[in-house]
């Protein structure tokens, strides 16, 4: 996989085992950590790229936001390996795996347009994207949102 040093990636994978993680062995991998431990680790992190492996599973949304803000401040780019489709919202580029094979990849907005493929593979769509996509079918929206506050504001404004 070619990595653009300026992009943040989400790797959506349904079978993240040791063999799969070997594909990313050139970078340090961070597994699940508490918010405090993760924050401490990142504050002293020197590399410009980091790999998360289901790291955000136990974090609250506000904690994830703070971690992403910290990464941005430290100019650290990430590759987030996860099976949780909700985690794609903040990235630039998505690579979707079906077992060991890449099923789909591209810029976030382009991949999220592939509703049928993502649902067929079992990942689904992020809630906000799914809701706003469905609302375009009802002719209530003409665009797809990825921010809930924006969507709610636009819906009831």
């Amino acid at each position: 996989m070619m990595i653009d040093e300026n992009l943040n990636y989400v790797i959506l994978a349904n079978n993240i085992n040791k063999k799969f993680l070997k594909n990313f062995s050139e970078y340090p991998v961070i597994n699940e950590l508490s918010f405090v431990n993760l924050k401490n680790k990142l504050e002293f992190y020197t590399s410009k790229r980091i790999i998360f492996n289901n790291t955000f599973y136990a974090l609250r949304d506000f904690e994830k936001k703070e971690i992403l803000k910290l990464l941005n401040k430290q100019k650290i780019k990430y590759i987030n390996i996860t099976s949780d489709i909700e985690e794609v919202i903040d990235c630039d580029y998505i690579v979707v795996y079906d077992d060991e094979n890449i099923a789909l990849e591209g810029k976030k907005d382009d991949v999220l347009r592939e509703e049928k493929i993502l649902k067929k593979l079992g990942y689904g769509l992020p809630f906000v994207v799914d809701l706003s996509t469905q609302l375009t079918y009802y002719n209530i929206f003409s665009k797809v949102y990825d921010d809930m506050d924006e969507l709610v504001g636009e819906l009831w404004n």
Partner: peptide, 30 residues
């Protein structure tokens, strides 16, 4: 997320029933 959405709508004064499925929520919005 569906609960968060209903809460945010309520915060704006839009009272939605407590839908637990996207399909039901969509119909209500429609």
């Amino acid at each position: 997320k569906i609960v968060e959405f209903c809460h945010k709508c309520e915060n704006l004064g839009v009272r939605l029933d407590h839908y637990k499925e996207l399909d039901e929520l969509l119909k209500a919005i429609y």
